[in-house]
């Protein structure tokens, strides 16, 4: 099957701590940190949006893969914060990475899993020889209503994956992918609304856990793999607790989840979340190791992937700095007032 030829990841450098948000709303920051297993979240600068984040990730992916961007036959950008309601983010990205014009491009939206849906689409297109390479991106500057629980986690970041079918070029082969989808009203944002609404506790069991569990079980059933066959597991991470609970529920260990769990230090990057988790794991994974990824998008659905790392990973690894190093070293803290300004919630009059 198709595989990953290269990848790139980008997280804005601005951070706000959970205590700072809690201070404004007179809530117990320590309790929220423990409850959500999150310390701080990334915030886009005033001049960053889902398109600029996608471009930065895409440029790194091109550099990492070593391919000529003109050989891309498709660019798909998954996001729930596309800068335009009508005008594709994907065309901005394609032009900014100098991919030429002989390609198809589209924006995808499926809450937090539109990026992994893009990977699946590209697998079909590369395996059927429609295109040589395709790029799938998950990128978001997610919105949390001031004072809402989501405000502690909704953050910004993105990752880009280049998919192709030539085994000699792959850093990891996708052995199998399956999905589980249902109409579930756990989280939504109507046209023109500035902030999403959600079903509170309803987002947990009928939303996240049902879809993550069913997609993961389906993958295990169809591949014959056991949880212990995987070296790393990445679940969608709306907070720092849900992926650990999902792991326990499905028979995985915390150790398998640790490397790909970024939400405690950058928040929930929505469409970027499971893809950034996979990028962090690929930064560390060794040839032959197996990775399982299960994304989740409200509304609702999960895409699950069984991935095996190839020998090519070591030679390409030197080309870009590891994601965890970028997150740890390149950051600037802001207070709540600057956070509001950067999110355009307060403007100069």
């Amino acid at each position: 099957m198709a595989g990953i030829i290269g990848y790139g990841a980008y997280v804005p450098r601005l951070r706000i701590k959970v205590e700072e948000i809690a201070r404004v709303w007179n809530e117990d920051g320590e309790a929220i940190k423990r409850g959500l297993n999150i310390k701080e979240k990334s915030v886009p600068a005033f001049d960053e949006d889902a398109a600029t984040i996608a471009v930065e990730a895409a440029r790194k992916a091109i550099h990492h893969s070593g391919i000529n961007p003109r050989e891309l036959g498709a660019v798909y950008v998954g996001s729930e914060s596309h800068p335009y309601a009508v005008k594709p983010t994907a065309t901005v990205v394609a032009q900014a990475i100098d991919a030429g014009h002989n390609l198809t491009a589209a924006d995808l939206e499926f809450a937090c899993k539109a990026g992994t849906a893009g990977i699946q689409m590209l697998m079909g297109m590369t395996d059927s020889n429609m295109i040589k390479y395709g790029m799938a991106i998950g990128s978001d500057t997610s919105q949390g209503r001031p004072g809402d629980a989501l405000e502690y986690t909704a953050s910004a970041g993105g990752a880009a994956f280049i998919i192709g079918k030539e085994k000699k070029e792959m850093i990891a082969e996708i052995l199998k992918t399956v999905s589980y989808t249902s109409d579930t009203p756990d989280f939504w944002r109507r046209e023109g609304a500035n902030f999403p609404s959600h079903g509170g506790r309803f987002t947990g069991e009928p939303g996240y856990f049902k879809h993550v569990a069913n997609a993961t079980k389906l993958l295990l059933e169809q591949t014959g793999f056991k949880p212990s066959d995987f070296d790393y597991v990445v679940f969608h991470q709306p907070n720092g607790k849900f992926p650990l609970n999902a792991a326990k529920l499905l028979g995985f260990t915390e150790k398998q989840v640790e490397e790909g769990l970024l939400t405690p230090i950058i928040g929930n990057t929505y469409s970027g979340a499971s893809m950034l988790g996979l990028a962090a794991v690929l930064d560390k994974a060794k040839p032959g190791q197996k990775i399982m990824v299960t994304s989740f998008g409200s509304g609702a659905g999960s895409d699950s992937f069984a991935i095996q790392v190839t020998n090519n990973i070591e030679s390409k690894r030197k080309r870009v700095a590891p994601l965890r190093e970028l997150i740890a070293k390149d950051k600037m803290y802001i207070d709540y007032a600057l956070y509001l300004k950067n999110r355009s919630s307060i403007v100069r009059t």
């Binding site: 960053e48 949006d49 600029t52 471009v55």
Partner: peptide, 12 residues
């Protein structure tokens, strides 16, 4: 003056 720089992609 003399600081090394690279480009980034942003909204203007």
């Amino acid at each position: 003056i003399g600081s090394k720089v690279k480009t980034v992609f942003r909204k203007m």
